[in-house]
Amino acid sequence: MELAPNLAVAAGIIVEILLLWETADRQRDAGPAPGILAPRLSRIQEITLIVLIVSWICIALAEYVNPPLSLNTLSFIQNAIMGPSFFFLFIFGMVIPKLMPRINEQTIVAINLIVLISLPAGIDWYWLAALLLPSLGVLVIALTNRIIHPGVKSLLYFWYLICLFIISYQNSYDLLASDQWSTSLEYFIGGASGIFLLLHSIFLVRFFLMLTANILPQNRYLVSLAMPQLFDDQQIPLLKFFGILAILAVIIVANQLTGLVASASLLNLLILLVVHFMDRPFALDQT
């Protein structure tokens, strides 16, 4: 891999970490600090935008200049990206899950839809049934307004992590996999979605252990205390929810017909958009 793709992957990873931080900040704090240059944005949003602009300038320069770097130098750059990334994944995936975005059942339905569309054509019927049954269950729950029991929330969240793991597995994620992407944008999306999906895949191990608290009655209070940090009770209006699902389906089908963007990159991008932005315009106007 040349310099520009390496920079694109690194930029994707950094921007995604900043987005996770911004989402966690926004969902947990009542009033994040305003930006310095743009007071209408929060400070972390401002930083994310600056990093995005600066990184793309660097990527464009690297593509234009295309310096002839040695294999040792490129390996050093890749190790410099992977080392801190794995450290981040371990700390924030297993030890301090403060950056896990809070989601609701509607987000899970949207992610589920993306996963079902991403499945290979020749999948065995029993795997399809194993995926469709919980998907239908999640959809039914998403169509109701009732507050969900913490035990059920934990199972829904576990299913959400399983869906993200399925996407990671299908992408066969190596953070710097070079043969599935061709443009710097695809490398950027690959880096961002890679860190996001791997973070959730590692958290899946810890959450699987957290689910054991549902077994003995004296431990179930732990799930009740932990789930509010991961699961949001707010929902967007049903009409808007179906509108978002329809838009997702149209984008995916249109891309499959036209082949404009690599399918894996599009699906990964849609997952990031759903998780980070689905609750944004509507979170404040719920009663």
Binding site: R206, L222, L225
Partner: peptide
């Protein structure tokens, strides 16, 4: 399971 919930509870 208490120690699995460290940092969350």
């Amino acid at each position: 399971p208490q120690f699995v919930f460290l940092g969350m509870v």
